[in-house]
Simulated scan of single mutants.
Amino acid sequence: MAKGNQKRAGGRPRAQGLLERYRPIDGVVDEMVDASGNPRPAWRSFIEALDELGAETLGQRFARADQYLRDAGVYYRVYDKAGANEREWPLAHVPLLIDEKEWAEISAGLVQRADLFEAILTDVYGPNRLVEKGILPAGLIAASPEYLRPVVGVRPASGHFLHMVAFELGRGPDGRWWVLGDRTQAPSGAGFALENRVATTRALSDI
């Protein structure tokens, strides 16, 4: 990047070192930098802090995070014809930072989506109005191996059918966030999320 293009808004110099040779990919929304190659507001202080640590220290800290995952026995298990194989958990050493206002919009949308799932389950195991009105095909529900016919009409003691939900998110080509997948079967992902947080804390707790 040309030295003449290393200024941020307000005339402050952009973080050097780590971003000196960084290049956004054309046609792809970059979460960390804008179209001019300058750190986005949510990233500025974080990038500056990483840059102050230096590449050698960062390498040592990231290695510390990886060592924690190995010591804790956190692996990604892959099932194939040969059976179950364990691979190292792919930790992203640099966490994804999202602007507070943007995250509030994402969070509100995900809460709404979770409430929708709860309402669908309540109906499927209750009055079944969605099937009656033709909104949900009866065959689709009956053919699902997850459908528990013996508990139809049974109301959970907590009042909720949905106890755990996770969403896979991705930035779409239009710049908006998309839900790529929903997970409601098992809480295993919560453990990985916790281990990711602990490992990242081992490396960047002071930041």
Rank of each mutant, 00 (worst) to 15 (best):
M32C: 06
A65M: 13
Y22T: 01
A63V: 03
L180F: 07
E31M: 10
W43R: 00
L169K: 01
P41G: 12
Q67G: 10
I25D: 10
P137K: 08
D51A: 15
S45H: 10
L50K: 01
P39H: 03
I207C: 02
L97C: 02
E100G: 08
R155N: 07
E56T: 11
K7R: 11
A114K: 02
P173V: 13
Y125C: 04
E52W: 08
E195I: 01
A114H: 02
R183S: 07
P39D: 04
E20Y: 13
N85K: 15
E86M: 12
R12E: 14
S144T: 00
A157K: 07
A143F: 00
L204N: 02
D26M: 07
L140S: 09
L91T: 02
F167R: 03
W103R: 08
G10D: 15
R176K: 10
F167W: 08
A84P: 04
A65V: 03
G4Y: 05
P145Y: 03
A186S: 10
L58E: 12
Y125K: 01
D71P: 05
L96P: 00
V29H: 15
G139F: 00
L169Y: 06
L96Q: 10
D99R: 07
S188N: 10
V165D: 01
R21G: 12
R12V: 11
Q185R: 13
R176W: 01
P156L: 06
F46D: 00
